[in-house]
Nucleic acid binder design. Sequence first.
DNA 1: ACGATGATGAAC
DNA 2: TTCATCATCGTA
Length: 172
Amino acid sequence: MKKVLDKQFFNRKTLAVARDLLGKYLVRKTGKKIRRYKITEVEGYVGSHDLASHSSKGKTERNEVMFGEAGRFYIYLVYGMYYMLNVVTEKKDYPSAILIRGVEGLSGPGVITRELKINKKFNGKSASRKTRLWFEDGGKINPRKIKKTPRIGVHYAGPVWSKKPYRFILEE
DNA sequence: ACGATGATGAAC
DNA sequence: TTCATCATCGTA
């Protein structure tokens, strides 16, 4: 039985957690069926000073879970059609999260939530077997296969923050 | 290159 | 209450 990643895992520096999530597994249980997906692409959103982060506008109804405990899901709707799957990191009141952008076999954050049937009901829930959506440990990965690039779709964050290399990709 | 589609936050 | 914007995707 693989180890389930707990609050301790996520209660660390966001960018460290983001790197560490590559090669780990996103696990979804629907009915009796369990599916496991190796995580291949993530983005860090790193505190209220990060102008690309929803939390840079302060606490609102939408983003309040970012201000809460690590290891919970932050789910929101973009473009009226797609849910984004994030997991909250760092200590309470340090608003930060990681967007799961890609897993093996599924490319794109909107595709992941559509395929895994993830919606706003998961917002604020802890990642655990109980919620039927969780993370598990994976095998060792080669650190040389981790690529860093700027985040996607965050031009609004301005010249500095839109270019921060907070997107992590696991090359095959 | 662009339209689908609706919640969100800020302005008024 | 209105308005512009949006951490996207599939079709063209």
